[in-house]
Protein backbone atom coordinates (compact mmCIF):
# COMPACT_ATOMS: atom_id res chain seq x y z
CA UNK A 1 0.00 0.00 0.00
CA UNK A 2 1.05 3.61 -0.61
CA UNK A 3 1.82 5.96 2.29
CA UNK A 4 2.54 9.68 1.99
CA UNK A 5 5.69 10.47 3.98
CA UNK A 6 7.02 13.94 4.95
CA UNK A 7 10.27 14.29 6.87
CA UNK A 8 11.02 17.77 8.22
CA UNK A 9 14.06 19.91 9.09
CA UNK A 10 17.25 17.81 9.40
CA UNK A 11 15.30 14.71 8.35
CA UNK A 12 14.14 16.14 5.02
CA UNK A 13 17.05 14.41 3.28
CA UNK A 14 15.25 11.09 3.96
CA UNK A 15 12.08 12.09 2.09
CA UNK A 16 11.12 9.51 -0.58
CA UNK A 17 11.58 10.98 -4.08
CA UNK A 18 7.92 11.65 -4.91
CA UNK A 19 6.76 11.89 -1.27
CA UNK A 20 5.23 8.38 -1.30
CA UNK A 21 6.49 5.05 -0.01
CA UNK A 22 5.24 1.56 -0.85
CA UNK A 23 4.92 -0.59 2.29
CA UNK A 24 3.37 -3.94 3.19
CA UNK A 25 -0.01 -4.24 4.90
CA UNK A 26 0.34 -3.95 8.69
CA UNK A 27 3.30 -1.55 8.42
CA UNK A 28 3.82 1.06 11.16
CA UNK A 29 5.73 4.37 11.24
CA UNK A 30 8.60 2.39 12.82
CA UNK A 31 8.81 0.27 9.64
CA UNK A 32 8.95 3.46 7.59
CA UNK A 33 11.86 4.79 9.67
CA UNK A 34 13.75 1.54 9.03
CA UNK A 35 12.87 1.46 5.35
CA UNK A 36 14.15 5.03 4.87
CA UNK A 37 17.21 4.35 7.13
CA UNK A 38 16.28 7.20 9.48
CA UNK A 39 18.23 6.87 12.76
CA UNK A 40 15.64 6.22 15.51
CA UNK A 41 17.38 8.54 18.00
CA UNK A 42 16.98 11.48 15.62
CA UNK A 43 13.19 11.11 15.51
CA UNK A 44 11.38 12.86 18.38
CA UNK A 45 7.75 12.82 17.26
CA UNK A 46 5.64 11.20 14.50
CA UNK A 47 2.20 12.30 13.30
CA UNK A 48 -0.21 10.13 11.30
CA UNK A 49 -2.92 12.07 9.47
CA UNK A 50 -2.14 15.09 11.65
CA UNK A 51 -2.43 13.17 14.95
CA UNK A 52 0.42 12.50 17.38
CA UNK A 53 0.19 8.73 17.00
CA UNK A 54 3.55 7.31 18.01
CA UNK A 55 5.67 4.91 15.97
CA UNK A 56 3.72 1.70 16.47
CA UNK A 57 0.25 2.47 15.09
CA UNK A 58 -0.81 0.31 12.11
CA UNK A 59 -1.04 2.36 8.92
CA UNK A 60 -3.71 2.32 6.21
CA UNK A 61 -3.53 3.01 2.48
CA UNK A 62 -2.94 6.75 1.74
CA UNK A 63 -2.19 7.64 5.37
CA UNK A 64 -0.02 10.76 5.80
CA UNK A 65 3.03 10.33 8.05
CA UNK A 66 4.99 13.37 9.34
CA UNK A 67 8.39 12.76 10.97
CA UNK A 68 10.21 15.40 13.08
CA UNK A 69 13.56 15.77 14.86
CA UNK A 70 14.14 17.96 17.95
CA UNK A 71 13.45 21.61 17.05
CA UNK A 72 13.96 24.55 19.37
CA UNK A 73 15.37 27.55 17.52
CA UNK A 74 14.05 31.05 17.95
Amino acid sequence: MKIQVSCFATLSKYNPPDGYLEVEDGATPAHILDKLSIPRDEVKIVFVNGQNSGKEVVLKENDRVGIFPAIGGG
Binding site: F8, A9, T10, P69, I71, G72, G73, G74
Partner: peptide, 9 residues
Amino acid sequence: GFVAGTTGL
Protein backbone atom coordinates in the same frame (compact mmCIF):
# COMPACT_ATOMS: atom_id res chain seq x y z
CA GLY B 1 7.15 28.94 18.91
CA PHE B 2 10.20 27.03 17.66
CA VAL B 3 11.98 26.94 14.34
CA ALA B 4 14.85 25.33 12.41
CA GLY B 5 15.94 26.08 8.86
CA THR B 6 12.72 26.65 6.91
CA THR B 7 10.50 24.66 9.30
CA GLY B 8 8.57 26.33 12.13
CA LEU B 9 5.96 25.36 14.70
